[in-house]
Design a protein around this nucleic acid. Structure first.
Lengths: 214, 214
DNA sequence: TAGATTGTTAATCGATTAACAATC
DNA sequence: TAGATTGTTAATCGATTAACAATC
């Protein structure tokens, strides 16, 4: 039995989870100043949020602060990373090496979030065999065997929309448990598969409405 | 005075706005079947949402349906597009022609959302002067004059994080009113500037938590 | 007509905000 | 000590869900 150094993490609402990476970003930058402690007031100001909300959000990770002192930056960073599973490395595969896929393959920041793309796949034979940012592009025919062999659980879907559904089925049947979906297609998948839709039109819609309300 | 053919659009909550593009996607696909009307039950099933919520969401655009018949697909499409400002074309500029910037320059779907990227800018002189997917890459030195001359109001920020703040100031001083921010930096901007953060780590965090709760 | 579907009003649920006690 | 900050409990606010009337 382990000795718990801090309370267990709670569930946390979706809005809370979405704010945590921003806190982490602020903390990592703050860390470079050499300060050991930080107050929620400071974090709240940097992100234009309410300090009570920041405190409540942070509490879901199980971390605690000290009155008058604030929170240990180091502890906060580790606590958020653990809560998001970013303290350990997860392997992922990417399918669809178009413009967006290529961009994601070169996105170094994923490493900081514990995500390692171990292989990319594409149906276009002219790019199969290449290596993009050190990641090999393999043929779709080797998808199932490779994913099973490496026991990859995360799939990044960057194929053209018409292929989205078919490829998603392929991911699931190869044992992928979480799909990061960059297509604009609403995937119909069995229970037990986590999907995160990253359709750009969502963000554009919000921006357009914000602009209309200025 | 114009004769209103439908009630005025309401404000609409953020979650509602975020769901509208998905409705539009379903509608555009449904349109190709040739059916003229669609029920909220149908839309709800396609997106795994509640039909009452779909109806409430659609009502913010001012559109109305007919009992027993449903909604006119054509009317719905136009109503959502009008609500999001996607019925007219808005010009935008993109700053930072790295991997992600290049991917966005090639993203044809923006046209369907009324967004036209008229110019890209980069500090790297080796790529300045090129044309990517028909969009010219111009030097940063011409940024201010070009944006003012073309009266561009939307800026897409795809520069490396360390440059984010400085470039954002440049956008604002050139008259940009809305910033689509793909960096992980929380921009501090004056009132009256709309910002939409599109940091990928937010989505990754949600996916990771979903995976942990399977 | 009967039944399917819309649209509105009320109830519930959940997240944010406010108030305040605890404490270093 | 006094004051700044945490952390919890209560109040408010807003979004979702339920109930039901309206109607083609």
């Amino acid at each position: 039995m382990s000795t718990p150094t801090q309370p267990a993490a709670k569930t946390g609402s979706l809005p809370t989870i979405r704010r945590l990476p921003a806190y982490l970003q602020v903390l990592l930058e703050y860390q470079s100043t050499g300060m050991e402690n930080i107050s929620t007031t400071h974090i709240a100001n940097a992100l234009e949020l309410d300090q009570v909300q920041v405190r409540k959000d942070l509490s879901v990770t199980g971390v605690t602060g000290r009155p008058r002192i604030g929170y240990s930056v180091q502890q906060l960073v580790e606590s958020i990373q653990r809560y998001l599973g970013w303290n350990m490395t997860s392997d992922a595969v990417l399918v669809g090496v178009g413009h967006l896929g290529t961009a994601l393959l070169g996105y170094r920041a994923f490493e900081k979030h514990g995500l390692r793309i171990v292989a990319a796949f594409d149906g276009d034979e002219t790019i199969v065999g290449r290596s993009i940012h050190g990641i090999p592009v393999l043929p779709m025919s080797s998808f199932d065997a490779t994913v099973r062999r490496l026991e990859v659980k995360i799939g990044i879907l960057t194929v053209p929309s018409p292929a989205a559904h078919e490829v998603a089925q392929l991911l699931v049947s190869a044992g992928i448990k979480g799909i990061w979906n960059f297509t604009s297609v609403a995937l119909q998948l069995p229970k037990g598969i986590a999907v995160q839709n990253e359709d750009l039109s969502t963000g554009l819609a919000v921006l357009c409405r914000k602009l209309m309300n200025l």
